[in-house]
């Protein structure tokens, strides 16, 4: 069984308003690395909130590791399995001191002190912030704050972390830090990572991309598959990675170009081949 499974999910913030999520069926396997793309307001954040049970679907159901997100009794179990990192690092840090913030989740779980200490230390080590344990949170850089937020979720030892535009407010350095952290969580700790992003550079790192438009999933596949459909993406006003765009433009000018090239080096390879001919 898939780790997360959504069946016919619909959702509206209020009965009068139009559906924000309009019939979504999706399965996310354990240990996978999924990116969700879509233009502003297409319902990505809402989907993320549905997946970790902050809001309940108006229609259909979502199972996370077999737990229905509407099941109030197992709310706690669900939260432990699926954590979420939000866009604005300032609005998700609870405590003024780094280590107390990271301890927030295990404290809520009622763990014994030694266990909390262990989890805090190892979570901080995972995001490479151990030496900041006693620092004040508000004096850290954006990327560091976001890493603390990730550590705060890690301390819960979830099986899945959803990143809702976790890199959107960061500078390029911060963005790289977080992207690297996400990859490490997925590859080394085997945590299922779902990342919502507007940066194609981050999306191509994923194993799978889901494209949303107006509350529906309109494409689902590997990065190479998704970015082959340049026209379809342009239709829903999404960008493609720069090199894909370049090859696409050359194709439009009448050259024969392969689709689904994502990395600069691959593109360079293709182009030199063509030029040699």
């Amino acid at each position: 069984m898939a780790f997360i499974e959504a069946r016919g999910v619909e959702f509206a913030y209020s009965p009068e308003e139009p559906l924000v999520i309009d019939g979504i069926d999706v399965k996310i396997e354990k240990g996978s690395y999924v990116a969700i793309l879509g233009h502003n307001g297409c319902g990505k954040s809402t989907l993320a909130k549905l997946l970790c049970g902050i809001v309940a679907p108006t229609e259909g159901q979502i199972l996370v590791d077999g737990i229905n997100t509407c099941d109030g009794e197992q709310e706690f179990e669900l939260r432990k399995k699926c954590g979420m990192v939000f866009q604005n690092p300032d609005n998700q840090l609870v405590a003024s001191v780094v280590e107390e913030d990271v301890a927030f989740a295990p404290e809520n779980l009622g763990l014994p002190r030694e266990e909390i200490r262990k989890r805090v230390d190892s979570a901080l080590a995972t995001v490479d912030m151990s030496e900041y344990a006693k620092h004040t949170t508000h004096k850290l850089s954006g990327g560091q704050k976001q890493r603390i937020a990730i550590a705060g979720i890690l301390a819960m030892q979830p099986e899945c972390i959803i990143f809702d535009e976790a890199t959107a407010m960061l500078d390029p350095t911060g963005r790289k830090e977080i992207a690297a952290a996400m990859k490490r969580l997925n590859k080394e700790l085997g945590i299922t990572v779902v990342t919502i992003t507007h940066y194609m550079g981050e999306a191509i790192e994923a194993d799978r991309i889901i494209v949303m438009n107006q509350g529906k999933i309109i494409a689902d596949g590997t990065p190479a598959e998704i970015f082959s459909k340049v026209e379809q993406l342009k239709e829903v006003s999404l960008a493609v990675p720069q090199v894909t765009e370049l090859l696409y433009m050359l194709e439009c000018d009448g050259y024969q170009m392969p689709r689904g090239i994502l990395h600069a080096m691959d593109a360079a390879e293709v182009l030199t081949q063509k030029l040699k001919k």
């Binding site: 939260r79 954590g83 979420m84 604005n88 609005n91 998700q92 609870v94 989740a105 979720i153």
Partner: peptide, 15 residues
């Protein structure tokens, strides 16, 4: 901010 913080706290099992 308060709304977002509430979501974040809930996500971290605050009850």
């Amino acid at each position: 901010r308060a709304e977002e913080l509430a979501d974040a706290m809930e996500c971290r099992c605050y009850h």
